[in-house]
Computed example of a mutant assay.
Amino acid sequence: MKLRRTAEDYLKTIYLLSQKAEVHGTYIAEALGVSKPTVSISLKALEQEGYLMRDENRAFCLTEAGLKIAKATYERHQTFQTLLEELGVDGKTAAADASLMEHAVSPESYEDSPLRGWQKERR
């Protein structure tokens, strides 16, 4: 399934924020640099699609489906950022470019290529 880039960005952001604390719309808006109303609309759609839910504190949590997509998107990002940095690209530029590349490469191409697992082999 091919999700739109915005959905992948939201899911990845929620995943990363959830590693530190409860995730609320305000934190997502700050992390993505978008308005709170925009976040509200996007989160409602993601909730309706079954990628996230709210807990008793009204914090957002990823469902199993949302977590799978978030982790895959984050893994692609990390792989491309590491690859670019090893090629000599500075960290800030590599991170920005990896954010674009994580969406440009299809899951099929990534899964079937030597890139999958490349970063883990480098450690």
Score class of each variant (00 low, 15 high):
R54G: 01
A65C: 01
T82A: 14
P107L: 09
T38I: 02
A29T: 00
D97Y: 12
K71H: 08
F60G: 00
S42G: 05
Y10Q: 03
Q48K: 07
V105T: 14
Q19H: 04
L43C: 02
V105P: 02
E22F: 08
K68C: 05
I41N: 08
Y27R: 15
A59V: 09
Q81D: 14
D55P: 02
D55A: 06
F80E: 02
E108W: 08
L46H: 00
S40Q: 10
G25M: 00
E22R: 05
L67W: 03
D97Q: 07
E30M: 13
S106N: 06
H103E: 15
I69F: 03
E22C: 04
D55W: 05
A72K: 00
E47R: 05
Q81N: 11
L43M: 10
A21H: 13
A94T: 00
V105R: 00
L52F: 06
G91A: 11
L84N: 03
N57V: 05
S40A: 09
Q48L: 12
E86M: 15
E30P: 01
V23E: 07
L83D: 01
A98V: 13
L83H: 10
S42I: 01
D55G: 13
V89T: 11
A21E: 15
H24S: 02
Q48E: 14
R5D: 14
I28M: 04
V89C: 11
G91Y: 04
A70D: 03
P107Q: 11
T26Q: 10
Q19K: 15
Q48W: 02
E102R: 14
E102K: 15
Y74V: 08
A70P: 06
A70K: 07
S18A: 15
T26S: 07
F60K: 05
T26W: 07
S99F: 07
L83Q: 07
Y51N: 01
H77I: 04
A7S: 09
E56Y: 09
I28D: 00
E30A: 08
I14V: 12
A95N: 06
Y10D: 00
K92D: 12
Q81P: 06
K92S: 10
R4M: 09
I69R: 14
K44I: 06
L17C: 05
I28K: 00
L43I: 12
I14L: 02
F60V: 13
L84F: 14
E47G: 10
E108Q: 14
K20Q: 15
E49L: 04
Q78I: 13
P37S: 05
H77R: 08
G66Y: 07
S40L: 02
T73W: 04
A29R: 01
L43Q: 04
S99W: 05
T82V: 06
E22Q: 08
A96L: 11
S42F: 05
R76A: 13
D97S: 12
A70I: 09
L62Q: 03
I69L: 13
E86K: 15
G66C: 06
K44R: 11
I41F: 09
R58W: 03
L52D: 01
Q78T: 11
A45P: 00
M101N: 02
G50E: 01
A94F: 12
L16Y: 08
D90H: 07
K92V: 10
R54D: 00
A70T: 12
H103P: 04
G50P: 03
E108G: 04
Q19E: 07
M101C: 03
M101F: 11
T13I: 09
V23K: 01
H24Q: 11
A21L: 10
E75L: 08
L17G: 07
L87Y: 13
L100Y: 06
C61K: 10
H103D: 10
Q19G: 04
